[in-house]
């Protein structure tokens, strides 16, 4: 069985620093996968490497059998728009939203093809069903909104495109527990079809029971058992 997203011996980092060490990961079509790990062990860097945003990377990343990774020693971000357009949505930590645009305009920027642009009203409606709190806020500039609302805008934007892989980076970060649970619920409602969703999180209880598979991440490598990622580490919060 081949995966939708196949990562083979990926290393990546910033400047002289290597954050991802020779990492292998296969994401299958239709699955929800969680990657658990503490801060600083490379979850965000893994996602950024998949989008070509790290300073450098080596190794192979196949999306539906097509290479979107490869060796790259400079020019972070040069290929990002092409990787994004090929169907990988990164829903980044915090938010990479456009503060001067309204909620509706922000969400509409997520449309990745002119065909979908013509059907944008219908697509917007179905996305708003997943995030009902956004509906009355459509004309509000995003810069004035709360953290939870901004996170929803950022997630809704990712759902507007014709994406196959959703990489969701710490959706609960900085949110009150109740709101975080609401965001995770909303992510659970997204119909994946032949796509897949990968969620990076620090909090196991939040995700338990909602995911098809949970992997751990420790020191830039994937551990098959999530508990390993937390073993022997003193957590100071």
């Amino acid at each position: 069985m081949t995966g939708l997203l196949e990562i083979r011996s990926l290393s990546a980092g910033y400047g002289p620093m290597r954050v991802i060490h020779d990492l292998d990961l296969v994401v299958h079509a239709g699955e929800r996968l969680a990657i658990m790990g503490l801060n600083g062990h490379g979850k965000t860097t893994l996602f950024r490497a998949i989008l070509g945003l790290t300073d450098w990377q080596t190794g192979s990343i196949l999306l539906g059998g097509r290479e979107i990774g490869g060796r790259r020693m400079s020019a972070p971000g040069r290929r990002t728009h092409r990787i994004a357009a090929s169907g990988v949505a990164l829903l980044p930590q915090g938010d990479a939203i456009f503060p001067g645009l309204t909620v509706e305009q922000n969400v509409l920027t997520g449309v990745t093809s002119s065909g979908t642009w013509r059907r944008r009203r219908g697509r917007l409606d179905s996305v708003l069903e997943i995030f009902p709190p956004l509906r009355p806020l459509l004309d509000m500039p995003v810069g004035k909104m709360s953290g939870g609302e901004r996170r929803m805008v950022s997630l809704a934007r990712g759902l507007m495109g014709d994406n196959r892989v959703f990489l969701v980076d710490e959706p609960s970060l900085g949110l009150a527990p109740k709101i975080a649970a609401g965001v995770i619920d909303a992510l659970g409602q997204v119909e994946l079809g032949e796509g897949a969703m990968v969620i990076a999180e620090q909090s196991i209880p939040l995700l338990s029971g909602r995911m098809d598979r949970i992997l751990g991440m420790h020191s830039g490598q994937i551990k098959q058992d999530a508990a390993d990622a937390f073993a022997g580490i003193s957590v100071d919060h």
Binding site: T80, A89, L90, I97, L101, S114, W117, R157
Partner: peptide
């Protein structure tokens, strides 16, 4: 328009624009 929206996205957040497939 869609292309106008993409220009504005690029003005406000170049990395965010790349993440929604806007080619510089």
């Amino acid at each position: 328009s869609r292309s106008g929206l993409r220009v504005r996205a690029l003005m406000q957040n170049p990395e965010g624009a790349a993440l929604v497939g806007v080619s510089l």
